[in-house]
Design a protein around this nucleic acid. Sequence first.
DNA 1: GTGAAAGCGCTAACAC
DNA 2: GTGTTAGCGCTTTCAC
Lengths: 336, 336
Amino acid sequence: MASDKRPGSSVTSFDVARLAGVSRSAVSRAFTPGASISQDARQKVIDAANELGYRVNPVARALNQRRTDLVGMIVARMDNPYRASQIDALSKTLVRNDFRPMLFCIDEGHGTEQLLSMLLDYSVSGVVITSDAPPAEICNECAHLQVPLVLVDRDDRLPQVDRISGNNAKGGRLAAETLIDAGRRKLLVLQPETAVYSITTRIEAFLAAAAEFGADVEILPVGTHNYEAGRQAAPAVAARRQDGIGIFCPTDIVALGLLDALRVGYGVEIPREMSLIGYDDIPQSGWEFANLTTIRQPVDTFVDVIVEMLKSRIAEPDAAQREELVDVMLVRRGTV
Amino acid sequence: MASDKRPGSSVTSFDVARLAGVSRSAVSRAFTPGASISQDARQKVIDAANELGYRVNPVARALNQRRTDLVGMIVARMDNPYRASQIDALSKTLVRNDFRPMLFCIDEGHGTEQLLSMLLDYSVSGVVITSDAPPAEICNECAHLQVPLVLVDRDDRLPQVDRISGNNAKGGRLAAETLIDAGRRKLLVLQPETAVYSITTRIEAFLAAAAEFGADVEILPVGTHNYEAGRQAAPAVAARRQDGIGIFCPTDIVALGLLDALRVGYGVEIPREMSLIGYDDIPQSGWEFANLTTIRQPVDTFVDVIVEMLKSRIAEPDAAQREELVDVMLVRRGTV
DNA sequence: GTGAAAGCGCTAACAC
DNA sequence: GTGTTAGCGCTTTCAC
């Protein structure tokens, strides 16, 4: 039988100790993995705790361990469904691993300072930055204070700051190969001016592969990476509909804007007149209107690795910086 | 000059007190709005604190106030862009109001028990439930433990549990009026089997208004409320293309699935052959392929009210239950 | 392996 | 107003 009285109420380790006939230290030890306590004592404590509905108070524990179970997630561009799905998965995985996710959404490096204090003041167990433009200042601060930090799709290389990204190099090359396999010899790549590490890497790999295959590549700058940016590129792209081009958009959301505007606004037939490939495999890419061929980044693997990294660094704060690459795969649909 | 030494480090109220030449209580008071302290003393404390880079330790504070600044956000269906935008906005607004958002994503009432403990153990300042199927058990627990709770688009009526929803009644009626104004006399509404309060209310209002205007209405059940459900309804809807129907989808994401499948799979011309109206105004509804007429729920107003409710209830835990309705508006695009 | 005692950093009563 | 005194509930030396 569990808690009989107001649950979550003020039953303390003291109460449990008394009922179990042990000291408060014993209670503490019973709930501390790896603590030095006899099997017998532990069982008595557990029983008493169950009877009283006791659970250790994480706030009190945090106060003297100077560490909470909180993990800060810093994220920008939540309007990109890919980000939303990352956060969704990450939140669930953190909880499964006994962490408590805090969510900080930012607008491109805005409100950073306040955020920084917040995280540090709460002595979080770790921080995950999944943001295009996270202030380097936070990264440095965390590294400095020994707060485990995982950077997602970022290229900052700081000692003891772990990194994870999709295999952008492979993805970029895959995109080029796919377009070339489809017979496209003239290639076009949309490059957001606000391009960040992951996108830049994809594009570089794309260019390298294109060069290798002897294909022509042109770069078309676009404002940023969202639907609107892709849409606005449509006139320039439509102007080249005679060329039988193959287009690479380093983010699905941009590809979708372009694709949509191309078809609706210009009646361009894809893939008859041109081929298009995106990156991320967001749900919308599978929608009928889009049916976009793209490169999938497996979100679940991402988050599993993130949490694993967090845990290892908590265990070994001084371990060498780690860097993981998550495999990507081609998702063939109808635009190539 | 701010923190000069390791910031966020172990500078305590004691250090500040010494430097300012006051007691630790004075320091505490200086950082407690409304506390009884002289302007002079406060200033001395503030100065000393700045010099030392002191910030009150929220964990320690939480321990004896038995309340943190944490607010739990419980959310399901994060894959719906409307939800993602709500969370994005809510997270930002909470931070602006000195709360710290924790995010718990759930899969339709899964993993609830663990979640409940979490929130209570951390003595959160409040909980916001933006989830189609949040376990009533959590609601009861919170109400019982005096944890401020705001229900978004839910109909559970518990004492001291505040509620907020869009004006679904107005929205449903608006949808009907819009369709009828466009000359549609035969109406069709897609009703998810998993329909929840907000959706049910919209549909009821829609039906009532339709009846009032003497229009025919048929209800088409669909599995749930996501893109796929809308898509699967396409054959049944396409079968009625001769009838010049006006369709109401109580959620944009469903409308988009239907619309997309109708056009791509059946070549249905909208709004020539039929009219379609959605609900939520998610970004994708403004995309070229969709250009969906819909009912907008202003996310910013939503979150402002949510946070305001949280604050008032923290101030007055025993106040009467409140219920707010956020106004909605018609967004005319091209599907009606 | 176990208990006693001493905090973690802060706030809340209570005198003054 | 202000300082003193006690805790908040837990973990952690340190003896045993």
